[in-house]
Nucleic acid binder design. Structure first.
Lengths: 118, 118
DNA sequence: TCCATATTTCAATAATAGTCGAAATATTGA
DNA sequence: TCAATATTTCGACTATTATTGAAATATGGA
């Protein structure tokens, strides 16, 4: 991933409403959530929600599939992963970095960078 | 550190110039880089660079320390770590996610989320 | 077909962010 | 003190983004 593309993804997530939508979908898992339910949960007017969903879709962070009258959205985990990989690539010259504890098991593993450790 | 404002951090990184600055500092490691060298490397005019450095500093993604006439900036790895932890917290309902290969050892470990695996 | 519901598009407006020359400030070494 | 260099602030301008009501489109069920 190049810088330009990463900046686009980060900008998409750098908005309170869009980040809330994305987090909701990340937590929802592969099953996703239909648009109207997202709007209800976050209290966003239809036009506003549509605008933000379109933005997140355009950059590839979420995907929507038509399902009868609804559109069901889910997070694109692969895109998020690439983004995180980009952010941490070649980090910190082999020093320890990213040392904080975290909630998710996998995050807890992410303690040192570039130290060749399992 | 105050409470994490993830959208603010993401918006700060969601600009090509700022992301370039941040990546440069992430790769530079704890030693950091002086402002003028950053500007030269990225081809940013002093006023523009100052604007972006101030922005990144304000949200806590980088830190500058005066060093004689220069200001030496370095990445705040802890902030980035909190941000990544936030993005991946409670992800995907125990399904496999973030499955892509990555450059950094620590990233390579980050393969499943919430599966109770080491 | 007709109605109710889901979502998008349109359009006007409001708000915010980015750019960078020039002037100001700070620091150091001569 | 003076000149050179590093960085910030100011100010004016440009560009982009966000908001949302209302109208349009799409779908499925009665």
């Amino acid at each position: 991933m190049e810088t330009l593309n990463a900046a686009e993804l980060l900008a998409a997530l750098g908005h309170e409403s869009r980040l809330s939508v994305f987090r909701l979908l990340v937590e929802a898992g592969p099953e996703g959530i239909v648009a109207s339910a997202i709007g209800e949960k976050l209290g966003l007017p239809p036009a506003t929600l549509s605008f933000h969903l379109a933005h997140l879709s355009r950059v590839g962070l979420i995907r929507g599939r038509k399902e009868s009258r609804f559109i069901r959205y889910c997070a694109e985990y692969a895109t998020m992963d690439e983004l995180i990989a980009f952010l941490t690539r070649n980090c910190c010259q082999g020093e320890a970095c990213l040392p904080k504890t975290a909630t998710c098991d996998t995050i807890a593993k992410r303690r040192k960078c570039g130290d060749g450790n399992p």
